[in-house]
Design a binder for these strands. Structure first.
Lengths: 199, 199
DNA sequence: GGTGTTATGGACCTATCGTTCCCGAACGCC
DNA sequence: GGCGTTCGGGAACGATAGGTCCATAACACC
């Protein structure tokens, strides 16, 4: 029994996400956000408390929409080596076909770098993000072990390595998509995963 | 024939570097910098033009002093597999012994993440930094090839992979040094480099 | 249609931002 | 010791930052 919101929360989160993604947190002003979302300051503050709250919401949206999409294959319960290689192939394909988007890097990775040292909550979000990759790679590697596709016993170290590679790739992409570089990384990962295979 | 500077430029750069390293560029105010360096605003502006100029100088100092130190082994003209593994061992050792320092990550990596998309000059600095790793790894791998320690022909892809790992490790360290994680990465790299060795 | 509740727009607040300026102090040089 | 030049401290600048407030509008419910 009240006046309903005139805006789509999804649209607002999408635009706020995009703004933070391009400029970073500190460099983004409230005015940037009102312009991007079309909302007034009061609506923004009513809905998200403050700038930091909007970042949190945007990060949540990013993790659900964007990361969920990128990881849809790798996070399948039956994922294996193909899905691992497939993920890096997707990365290379994005670098090739959407360089402008790829040049944004990863919003969560950027946020870890910018706020990870001074903002514990941001760091926690980052940890969850990193664990998500670690878990997905680990699960896929254990599936591959179980199926005898891979020499067993190294899943943990290998998933650490793959996770670290993903983060590094996002840093390399930031502001300089360099499709050839990403292709080289993907090639190296493919060779790496091949070297894990049982003969 | 003029009044000489009363401050040590090295000291100023060291303190400015530290401040940018902890807080990031945008979150660092001029007051933070005057407090950290002990200089007044006017001295700071006279010496470095503006905040951005001071960042550039601090990045240069960082690359000379810090990165130079970390890479002193790997950049030796005769470096090989040992120096590659040694570099990652050093990383793990720092994580273990100086977690607070390791938790800062890497100033240049942080700057790429924060400014890489919006500040072309910062991105160039980042590119040079990344190329420095790539070149060092590549040189070491080619030395190893030449000595027959390693199966030849993959130096480029392998140095891309190692470089990307370093950047990823710095992101993982930021705000959360996690020595065990860094040890796992180092272990995985050791196994990886072993797998490159000729039988 | 009145009532209670929330949404919205925009003016407004204070604090702080990066930067400039001025003036006295401190030195090298003749 | 006076001159030329740079340094350095601090006040001051306009701009903009994040955030608040209030009056009005728009709905749901009875």
């Amino acid at each position: 029994m009240a006046r309903p919101r005139a805006f789509s929360e999804e649209h607002v989160l999408d635009q706020a996400m995009e703004t933070f993604w391009v400029k970073g947190y500190e460099a983004t002003s409230i005015e940037d956000l009102t312009e991007a979302t079309g909302l007034s300051r009061s609506s923004l503050y009513q809905a998200f408390d403050n700038k930091r709250g909007l970042l949190d919401a945007a990060l949540g949206y990013y993790n659900t929409e964007r990361v969920g999409y990128m990881l849809s294959g790798l996070e399948g319960t039956d994922a294996g080596l193909d899905e691992i290689v497939g993920f890096f192939n997707t990365l290379a394909a994005v670098a090739e076909e959407y360089p402008e988007r790829f040049a944004l890097g990863c919003l969560t990775t950027n946020t870890i770098a910018e706020l990870g040292k001074t903002d514990p909550a941001a760091r926690s979000t980052g940890d969850e993000y990193i664990n998500r990759y670690r878990r997905a790679f680990d699960m896929a590697l254990r599936n591959a072990e179980r199926r005898g596709e891979v020499t067993p016993g190294n899943a943990e170290a290998r998933s650490e390595l793959l996770t670290t590679l993903v983060l590094g790739a996002f840093i390399r992409a930031r502001g300089n998509p360099d499709p050839k570089g990403q292709l080289a990384i993907t090639g190296a990962v493919t060779a790496l995963v091949d070297s894990w295979k049982t003969l």
